[in-house]
Each structure stands twice: as structure tokens, then as C-alpha cells.
């Protein structure tokens, strides 16, 4: 997965970067709450120069999905 994304997630969720894996699940994650999710979206949009739709933001369930979503946006642009 994108290393920049892993670092961003680690920073926003305040956790070690090695614990960020594509299989990391949002639901039930102690730090990935709804507010941190929005913080993460804002940071991603700023860092990668992409804009996610409301549906996309809500649909994210894992780090892997987020990684793919960013890749799609970046190739589309």
C-alpha cells in the first residue's frame, strides 16, 4: 500500500505506522472514530490533492479500500 497514506493514518490516528495495514478495519477500531475519520479524509484530500464524495467517505470500511480509492482518484486525474 501507499507508504504516504500509512504515515498519514498513523499520524492522524496517533498510532505506530507499522500497525497500519490494508486489512485494518474502521468499525470498532478504538482510534478510528467518526471524527478522526473526517480528520483523516481532510488530511488525505490535502496531501493527495483529491476530493472524495460523501458516499465514498461513508463507504470506507478498511485501510485497503481507502488506498484503492486514492489510487483511482489519482489515475483519473
Amino acid at each position: 500500500m501507499n507508504q504516504k497514506l500509512a504515515e498519514l493514518i498513523a499520524d492522524v490516528l496517533d498510532m505506530p505506522v507499522k500497525e497500519v495495514t490494508p486489512r485494518m478495519v474502521r468499525e470498532g477500531h478504538p482510534k478510528w472514530d467518526s471524527l478522526n475519520h473526517l480528520r483523516l479524509v481532510t488530511a488525505i484530500e490535502e496531501e493527495f490533492g483529491v476530493a472524495l464524495s460523501m458516499d465514498e467517505i461513508e463507504a470506507v470500511e478498511t485501510v485497503g479500500q481507502l488506498d484503492e480509492m486514492i489510487a483511482e482518484h489519482c489515475t483519473a486525474a
Partner: peptide, 9 residues
């Protein structure tokens, strides 16, 4: 508007 709708920010 997006963050306002998603999170009442």
C-alpha cells in the same frame, strides 16, 4: 457543506 452534512461541523 460536506462536513456539515456528515458531521454537523
Amino acid at each position: 457543506p460536506r462536513m456539515k452534512l456528515l458531521a454537523k461541523i
